[in-house]
Design a binder for these strands. Structure first.
Length: 930
RNA sequence: GCCGGAGUGGCGGAAUGGCAGACGCGGCGGACUCAAAAUCCGUUGCCCGCAAGGGCGUGUGGGUUCAAGUCCCACCUCCGGCACCA
């Protein structure tokens, strides 16, 4: 009884492909190339999730399709294996992370192979491989050896950094320090997000609402020496160069917003001395007219950044951040106590507290005044925590009439509000804060100017007078690149020690030929209670080294998980190269990635970091293109099965869902006890009780996680692949449906029976399969199917491609004679979707394996058109009949045919036709009176 | 609050401004069978009607058009992201 048995044929063909190297990729493309890439997985201990095969199947279909069209396809897979979860697991179980990671990778690899993806497994890599770590460290050294030239807008070797004479005069140490200040990888003593529970510091991006993104643990800010990457210097290019990319507009926008570039001006406000303020101000202004605007503000001015210099005349107070360096100097004796108290309170507040109280502005007056650079008015300086020390200059000019936050503050503390902008063609209502563009009013010489023009004029005039200059800012912060954890890449950096064993502050990169710096064996790799990294407890022979007669201590921080994923797509091209991170010839031939599919959760971090590294490598001549990922597609999330939730009171009775209170208990209601009534679902036995219907994110705690192994066991890999593609559009969020998998399995069964005689004792061709030439009708059927599937794969519209193949099978199933001439091309186009079944059926048809490399069938245009077409006839837009006309019938022929249709004639009788619309091939519409 | 995305049968979904609901699930009916499963065939948006046929129908309300799920305006709901960035 040879039924379709995926458990038999799937391992068979996986072994065949592996033995024959079917999907091995050549070193260089032999023809048109496509680099089809998945976001490689983090091999967690839970194994593959059904979300993984979604994107992986999509890329696999594209890769297989392109290969069959004669394209050279690069389609690799690897593992992002450093990172916190493995380490957390290791700590809990006492297994070294290297062991548990290796085990997890084995599981993932087995599961991926089980699904029949056409990866070139010879290219497999893990970010934890010592040879991979070696080149990750090498790239870090490239970053360390690079400075960003703002004039040329590109990274250049640190040796090319012009040294100002006054630095040169300071000697070798001063020059070294100056260089260190400009490197893309630099050390900083800035306040960091320390997470005691995780025992590490986190990047700003990893802290969400004051708690860690992973685990939701509290985060506090403490100062610590850290490695930073100067991603901010690339902010403009990272934003601008998104332009040419074929990415979803929403992802581009997300990155733009994240980078958050704004332009405006910096301006200096003279700090009013206690005596003779106006003379001092005039002297200062005169001096500035000569000297111009200094690069760094002196202690006599408060420098601010604004995007709206046009509102300068509306400034009624200034605000500095609690951490502002001049705050102490500004504060007058009478205000010292309140300011100190306020500053301490602000320091104790976590970021969470600060954002949670977003609507309630707090702050205190410093006692100081500055002088308005244009009007000469005296303006009070306040301190408030709604101004961030880390953005712009940490101080603002407040324009309460035209800024929502300033307005709230002014209202809270009774400060003046002066309107200086009015909308052009409407009247503002008195309660409105007009923050848009309009026309300047009450603004001295600028009155009447349109906002855009006014901004430019004010900025120019300020610059002319040495009081300001155009400036740009970005929300993006430099990338905090070190972690106080064990399971990451060690930095290839040595810290020089003096005779007493104390660091001298001089840093020395590890020589390239000494890479990789491997992780030492460590009995105890737990993070400590303090930010002192686990590596600081490494054996002395690892920790301390001697070079050129000097003693050094190794850097004991490690790199964050993002490091490895920043460049893996390059290493895939040449994974065993021991001389280069990638051979330049190979890199030029394959890059950029033509299609990159992965989850939207990496929209900002991974994609931004990888683009940044790539641009640095590009600037330094190590790669040939400025952007790594030409086309990006985000697969949607797969939710758990649809659930109905009913609510019960604590006493036991049901409560309708829209009225349930916090004490009522929600419980799953089986689908057969529920029915739809109008807009809502209700209990079948108690229709007044509404139940909620919704699909939830899969999670262990909800118990709705679907295990791919089990689906494969029950229905096979081809069914899982096909189902995930059939569920709906790739980019949509969709709920899982167990019944849906069964449906797709039914389709594969029907494909099987199309070719195989199910009643025979052994696998044998069905007697209906014949060598006779097919009918015209069947030729049309197969060619239309090929055309649709081809077009849909190109558009990544896999669900509709599968629907078309189902239609084809539905046509063929009842046939007593199924011509090989239509079955064979069908098996070929089925192959990218259900490769195992296609190989098996190809073999049953007596063809030489593998169908996976069979040329993609060509569409014969003449079979796409019928001789006649059916065209709807409408009267006043309502469907009233159908006519059959020759395919090429023009508008007048169409109208004539419609008029002769008996039913239409009858309906048109006695009515005046106002107009006739006849669209060839589409419809006829009679517009009648009455 | 701001920025995205989405609302179409019982369910997942399909539809270059031109026949709404392809395809699949589920339901109903039939064939095969002693029976059931499996398989195959038919049918299936809602309402009225014995039927022929008619009416209604793509979140809500307006608009443009011979024609709107699709375009425009306003609103509602859900999902996702951001959140004092001056």
């Amino acid at each position: 009884m040879p039924r379709y048995e995926p458990a038999r044929i799937e391992p068979k063909w996986q072994a065949w492909w592996e033995a024959h190297g079917t999907f091995a990729t050549p070193r260089l493309p032999a023809s048109r190339k496509r680099y089809v890439l998945d976001m490689f997985p983090y091999p967690s201990g839970d194994g593959l999730h059904v979300g993984h095969p979604e994107g992986y199947t999509a890329t696999d279909i594209v890769a297989r399709f392109e290969r069959m069209r004669g394209t050279s396809v690069m389609h690799p897979m690897g593992f992002d294996a450093f990172g916190l979860p493995a380490e957390e697991h290791a700590i809990r179980t006492g297994t070294p992370p290297r062991e548990s990671t290796a085990r997890n990778i084995d599981t993932f690899r087995r599961q991926l192979k089980m699904l029949g993806f056409s990866y070139d497994w010879n290219r497999e890599l893990a970010t934890t491989d010592p040879e991979y770590v070696r080149w990750t460290q090498w790239i870090f050294l490239v970053l360390h050896d690079t400075w960003f030239d703002p004039v040329e807008q590109r990274g250049r070797p640190i040796a090319d950094l012009p040294i100002p004479p006054e630095v040169e005069a300071g000697g070798e140490r001063a020059v070294a320090a100056y260089r260190d200040e400009h490197r893309l990888a630099y050390q900083s003593e800035a306040p960091v997000n320390w997470c005691p529970a995780l025992g590490t510091v986190l990047a700003n991006e990893e802290v969400v609402g004051g708690v860690s993104e992973r685990g939701g643990h509290p985060v506090v800010r403490i100062p610590l020496r850290q490695w930073m990457l100067r991603i901010t210097s690339y902010a403009e290019r990272l934003e601008r160069e998104l332009d040419g990319l074929d990415w979803p507009a929403s992802i581009k926008k997300l990155q733009c917003d994240w980078i958050g570039r704004s332009t405006g001006a910096e301006a200096d406000f003279f700090i009013a001395p206690s005596q003779d303020a106006s003379r001092a101000f005039n002297d200062w202004k005169a001096a500035r007219a000569v000297s111009g605007f200094p690069a760094r503000p002196g202690r006599d001015v408060l420098r601010i950044y604004t995007t709206r210099p046009d509102t300068l005349y509306g400034v009624t107070f200034m605000v500095v951040a609690p951490e502002h360096p001049l705050l102490d100097a500004l504060t007058t004796e009478s205000q010292r106590d309140v300011v100190t108290a306020y500053r301490e309170a602000a320091a104790r507040k976590s970021d969470l507290d600060r954002t949670d109280l977003a609507c309630e502005k707090t702050g205190v007056f410093t006692g100081a005044f500055v002088i308005h650079p244009l009007s000469g008015a005296s303006i009070p300086v306040w301190v408030a925590d709604y101004v961030l020390a880390t953005y712009g200059t940490g101080a603002i000019m407040a324009v309460p009439a035209h800024d929502t936050r300033d307005h709230e503050f002014a209202t809270t503390f009774g400060l003046d509000i002066i309107t200086v902008v009015e909308p052009i063609d409407r009247v503002v209502d008195p309660d409105e804060r007009f923050t848009g563009d309009g026309r300047a009013v009450a603004s001295g010489p600028y009155t009447g100017l349109a906002t855009r023009a006014c901004i430019a004029r004010v900025a120019d005039d300020l610059e002319e007078a040495g009081l300001g200059r155009p400036a740009a800012n970005s929300k993006l912060r430099d990338w905090l690149f070190s972690r106080q954890r064990f399971w990451g890449e060690p930095f290839p950096i040595l810290h020089e020690l003096d005779d007493a064993g104390r660091p001298t502050g001089i840093v020395r990169p590890v020589e390239e030929r000494e890479l990789p710096v491997s992780l030492p064996e460590l009995a105890d790799f737990r993070p400590g209670q303090t930010p002192d990294p686990p590596l600081s407890r490494a054996p002395a022979d690892w920790l301390f080294v001697e070079r050129d007669g000097r003693r050094y201590r190794r850097e004991t921080n490690t790199m964050p998980q993002w490091a490895g994923s920043c460049w893996y797509y390059l290493r895939f091209l040449d994974p065993r190269n021991t001389l280069h991170f990638v051979d330049p010839e190979i890199e030029r031939a394959w890059m950029p990635v033509d299609l990159y599919i992965g989850g939207a959760e990496h929209a900002v971090l991974h994609l931004l970091y990888a683009r940044f590294w790539h641009k640095v490598l590009f600037d330094r001549g190590h790669v040939s293109c400025p952007e790594p990922f030409g086309r990006l597609v985000n697969q949607g999330m797969i939710l758990g099965e649809m659930e109905f939730t009913g609510y019960r009171k604590a006493e036991g009775g049901w409560v309708s869902a829209e009225r349930h209170g916090p004490d009522d208990v929600g419980a799953r209601v089986p689908a057969e006890q529920v029915e739809k009534q109008g807009e809502h679902f209700v209990l079948r036995d108690a229709p007044s009780i509404r139940v909620e219907s919704r699909a939830y994110k899969m999670s262990k705690s909800r118990g709705n996680v679907v295990n791919p192994d089990q689906v494969v066991r029950e229905h096979g890999a081809d069914a899982l692949r096909l189902y995930e593609m059939f569920m709906g559009p790739l980019e949509a969020t969709k709920p899982w449906s167990t019944a849906g998998v069964g449906g797709v399995r039914g389709f594969l069964d029907r494909c099987w029976r199309l070719v195989v005689d199910e009643r025979a004792d052994d696998v044998r061709l069905a007697r209906q399969v014949v060598a006779d030439p097919p009918s015209d009708e069947h030729l049309r059927e197969i060619h239309r199917t090929i055309a649709k599937v081809t077009k849909d794969i190109e558009a990544l519209s896999f669900n509709t491609a599968i629907a078309r193949m189902m239609e084809f099978v539905n046509v063929c199933t009842p046939l007593e004679k199924r011509s090989r001439a239509i079955l064979e091309p069908f098996i070929v186009i089925l192959a990218p979707f259900a490769p195992h079944l296609a190989e098996e059926l190809w073999e049953v048809l007596g063809k030489a394996a593998p169908v996976s490399l069979e040329p993609w069938p060509t569409v014969e245009e003449r079979w796409l058109h019928d001789e006649t077409v059916e065209v709807p006839v409408q009267i006043r837009g309502k469907l009233r009949g159908r006519i059959v006309v020759p395919a090429g019938a023009d508008a007048s022929a169409l109208e004539a045919a419609a008029r002769t249709d008996p039913r239409i004639t009858e309906l048109l009788a006695g009515r005046r036709i106002v107009k006739v619309i006849a669209v060839p091939g589409r419809l006829v519409n009679f517009v009648v009176e009455g």
